[in-house]
């Protein structure tokens, strides 16, 4: 676990994102401010096109803000170059995606080993096996993503996200592609691991059930934060 700051582990300060289109400047996010303490679970809610995914991308350092700052663990992402942000992600950030983003050529085990191998962690195979058994995929280690059901693929993705024990985990519509029953199981798993590892969990969703499990809900509307 990283150090916990009273000012918040993840902070957005006057955060904005604009893009230039043929019809002029398009504001996607405008003046977003919040502070999240370590270990908290956060839901970013909003309709399609409200800027959820863009905000998630900015918070995770996958995209660059047009204005304002994102601070993770006292480090201003705007002051890092792309490789600096990558190194920050390597040490402390995990991801879960709506469409799982498992690499089709790799087995479940290899997919989970990947972030450990990239971070040159010790014994990546053992760690990956352990976490896969914790998400109930002990029998599916050598299956390829195409041989797994949607729920199994997302469990594998969650195992991959938690394998490197990140301090903060970003999830983009983690139940978006799943039926309600499977979605419920995935939510339970996500929060179970979140509690076990004390991870800060930030997810973009329009699933109210999922959002209700979170301690903080950030409501976005047309790029503005309307409710915390």
């Amino acid at each position: 676990m990283g150090s916990q700051q009273s000012a918040g582990f993840v902070q957005a300060i006057q955060l904005g994102k604009q893009v230039t289109t043929s019809e002029g400047q398009l504001v996607i996010l405008d003046d977003i401010n919040f502070s999240i303490a370590a270990g908290t679970s956060v839901a970013i809610l909003g309709a399609s096109g409200s800027g959820k995914t863009t905000l998630l991308g900015l918070l995770a350092g996958l995209d660059i803000a047009s204005t304002g700052h994102v601070i993770i663990n006292d480090i201003d992402l705007g002051e890092l170059d792309e490789d600096g942000r990558a190194l920050l992600r390597a040490g402390s950030v995990g991801f879960v995606f709506q469409n799982f983003q498992l690499l089709s050529g790799l087995t479940a085990l290899e997919n989970v080993m990947l972030p450990l191998e990239l971070a040159t962690a010790d014994k990546p195979k053992e760690t990956a096996k352990d976490i896969l058994s914790r998400v109930g995929l002990a029998e599916r280690l050598h299956h390829y993503p195409a041989q797994l059901s949607g729920g199994e693929q997302q469990r594998c993705a969650i195992a991959r996200a938690f394998a490197a024990r990140p301090q903060v985990l970003f999830a983009d519509e983690p139940t978006g592609n799943l039926d309600p029953v499977t979605g419920k199981r995935i939510i339970d798993l996500l929060f179970k691991l979140n509690r076990e590892q004390g991870t800060t969990l930030i997810m973009a969703t329009h699933d109210e059930a999922l959002a209700e499990n979170c301690e903080i809900r950030l409501q976005l509307q047309a790029g503005k934060l309307v409710n915390i």
């Binding site: 995770a60 996958l62 792309e82 490789d83 990558a86 190194l87 920050l88 992600r89 390597a90 040490g91 950030v93 991801f95 983003q101 690499l103 990947l114 972030p115 990239l118 971070a119 490197a164």
Partner: peptide, 9 residues
């Protein structure tokens, strides 16, 4: 994905 997991360019 590599970049996401922190691999530099």
């Amino acid at each position: 994905i590599y970049r996401c997991f922190g691999a530099t360019q």
